[in-house]
Computed example of a mutant assay.
Amino acid sequence: MAGKALSAKQLSDYHRNGYIVVKNFCSADETGRLYSTALNDDAMRKNALDLNDQSGKKTRLSLWFTPGNDVFGYLTRSERMIIPVRQLLDGDAPVCHFHSKLMQKEPKVGGAWEWHQDYGYWYKNQFMFPDQLMSVMVALTKANKQNGCLQVIKGSHKLGRMNHGFSGEQVGADMTMVNNALQTMDLVYCELEPGDALFFHSNLLHRSEANLSDEPRWSIISCYSLQSNLAYNETSTSWKTPVNVVPDEAILEWDAGSLSNNDFLAKENDPALKETGWEK
């Protein structure tokens, strides 16, 4: 897959279903380097946010905006990432990186993510065009039903943006419409091996259950937009800065800096966690 465009079938599947899985997106060595960095880089720990689900369990993430000269920045900016993202986003403008986040679901204690659309969050950043926004999740550990893998409702991106309110400290979709979608469309468990990638649309309904297993579930999710997609309530600048693409071999072969240079999100600065009045 490295450095190659998606096939016509993959493009068709994405537009029909709202997502595709690309197996072996990263090699075992690449995934090992990414996971080792996630575990050992102090900046990840120091900048982690805890968000409570409805039951009070904590789901932990570290989120940063500008992709740097670190191993995660190299993945985010790699040809194998940007070429398919450019194919999938709706328009001809340059691809920009909105943010990346390291998702950390620890054994027994990792909390759930409630049903939501990413655009349910990003609507508060006042991005204009959901078809010009998407996410790519790369599994750093095995993701399965036992440790709370991502669940998606196939084709739900075609429903448009749903109303979202607060579920614990998270933003959750209107459950009446979610339940309607579950009666109408297929629920899919996206089980991934380490190194597999899941590409998904910003309006795809998805959730994950708490990790009650003995194994961790860690993943990196990079979120992309086109430069033509204006965000009127976003103070970071990476969303309008074209990605400086690097070759795939950077992930393993280039010297990697520390993540401490990255512009991490502070919880109090996240527009998605602020009341606007229409969440009630």
Rank of each mutant, 00 (worst) to 15 (best):
E79M: 11
D41G: 08
S135D: 09
Q104N: 13
E169L: 03
P107C: 03
K105P: 05
R80A: 11
R45N: 12
L150G: 03
N244H: 14
L150T: 13
M177T: 11
A139H: 02
W113I: 14
N262W: 01
S236T: 14
S225Q: 07
E215M: 06
L198D: 05
K240G: 04
V245M: 13
P130Y: 01
D92F: 03
G68P: 07
L63K: 04
L230Y: 15
C223F: 08
K23F: 06
D13Y: 00
E215S: 08
A48M: 13
S156R: 00
H99P: 12
V243P: 07
N262A: 15
Q10G: 09
G110S: 06
G111W: 00
S213F: 07
K4E: 15
L204N: 08
T176S: 11
M134K: 00
T176W: 03
T76R: 01
Y189P: 11
E169F: 00
C96M: 08
K101Y: 11
A143F: 01
A272T: 11
I220T: 09
F65I: 06
F200Y: 15
H97D: 10
L61C: 09
L6G: 05
N125H: 13
Q117C: 01
N125A: 13
F166K: 04
G3A: 02
H99F: 12
G18E: 04
P216A: 04
N261G: 15
L49C: 10
T241V: 10
Q146R: 05
Y119L: 06
V22Q: 07
A272Q: 08
L75I: 06
P271V: 14
V171C: 03
T184Q: 13
G3H: 11
F129Q: 12
R161V: 15
D174F: 00
D255L: 02
Q126Y: 08
K23I: 12
L39A: 12
C149P: 04
R207H: 14
T184N: 07
K105Q: 12
S222A: 11
G32P: 08
K154Y: 09
S135C: 10
P94H: 08
D174N: 12
E191P: 01
M177D: 15
N244S: 15
W254N: 13
Q117V: 04
Q54G: 10
F98K: 08
H116F: 02
H97R: 04
N47V: 10
D90E: 09
N203T: 11
A250V: 10
P216S: 02
A28D: 14
C223N: 12
S260G: 05
F264I: 08
A272W: 02
V245A: 07
N229S: 10
Q54I: 14
T276R: 09
P216Y: 04
R207D: 14
